[in-house]
């Protein structure tokens, strides 16, 4: 079985930041492996260690800077990586889920994986839609928000648990090939070992342009027009001072409310 894992590099924002037009000012931004994708990579690597997968390939949409994040996934055990990028993509502001799915669909057509694992959402734009949109485009089955995958694929199906709201899980069988969107907590993502980090430097990382994928131009359906800090819904009372002072203020409030009396 061949597994394709979608890996995103997400923008992280410092606690204190400023907005510049419709983006966060550059100096407050960092980059990291998307948290949900970390679990997806781990699940794929565990399937490979259990001899259920022969190959784990990652795919990322992103510029050259994303290579550091892709190497993280390789260091954790993925075999090789693909990165989709093109100057045309740099000119598109906010990539909508449909456009991302179009790009990934071209990769799935080339790679023909049996299973695609994709994080439920990304931590920055949080659309939570790309994995299922991808499944539809390539004609795969799918399940969204999977927090358990049986490591056994009888009759070409995957048995999963979907995490519904309110502490309820749905037990579902999904025909393969399939796309599963992976929820945090499905496993315990490993830290890359030093050996893994060294090996990752030698693993193949291939860049594919729109031309390579046979895609003529991209255009996002979504235009980002404003960005601002949300207004507070409450009039918050902020206690100032050292920890003893603020703890004292909170203790007074709690006593007023009859706590621990």
């Amino acid at each position: 079985m061949k597994i394709l894992v979608t890996v995103s590099e997400v923008a992280t924002v410092e606690d204190a930041f400023e907005i510049d037009g419709t983006t966060i000012a550059d100096q407050y931004l960092g980059a990291d492996l998307n948290e949900w994708d970390d679990y997806a990579v781990e699940e794929a690597v565990q399937l490979q260690e259990a001899d259920l997968a022969d190959e784990v390939v990652t795919v990322t949409i992103g510029p050259e800077d994303a290579d550091q994040t892709i190497r993280q996934a390789l260091a954790k055990g993925a075999d090789r990586a693909l990165r989709v990028w093109d100057d045309d993509l740099a000119d598109v502001g906010l990539l909508d889920p449909g456009t991302k799915a179009d790009l990934l669909a071209a990769v799935v057509d080339d790679e023909q994986p049996d299973l695609v694992l994709s994080g439920v959402q990304t931590g920055d734009d949080s659309f939570g839609a790309t994995g299922v949109a991808l499944a539809d485009r390539v004609g795969y089955q799918w399940a969204a928000v999977v927090n358990h995958l049986e490591h056994e694929f009888a009759d070409d199906t995957a048995s999963v648990r979907r995490e519904l709201e309110g502490g309820v899980e749905e037990l579902t069988d999904v025909d393969l090939p399939a796309v599963l969107t992976i929820q945090t907590g499905i496993n315990e993502p490993r830290y890359a070992s030093l050996r893994g980090i060294r090996q990752a430097q030698r693993k193949p990382l291939e860049v594919q342009t729109l031309d390579d994928l046979g895609i003529e131009g991209v255009d996002s359906a979504l235009a980002l027009t404003e960005m601002y800090e949300p207004e507070s819904e409450t009039d918050v009372t902020v206690w100032e001072g050292g920890a003893d002072d603020t703890a004292g203020d909170l203790a007074s409030l709690l006593r007023e409310k009859g706590v621990a009396q």
Partner: peptide
């Protein structure tokens, strides 16, 4: 809609 885990709100337009 929100971005960055609720740190900012945005407006997006689609036709």
């Amino acid at each position: 809609r929100e971005m960055y885990g609720g740190k900012v709100e945005t407006t997006v337009e689609l036709e």
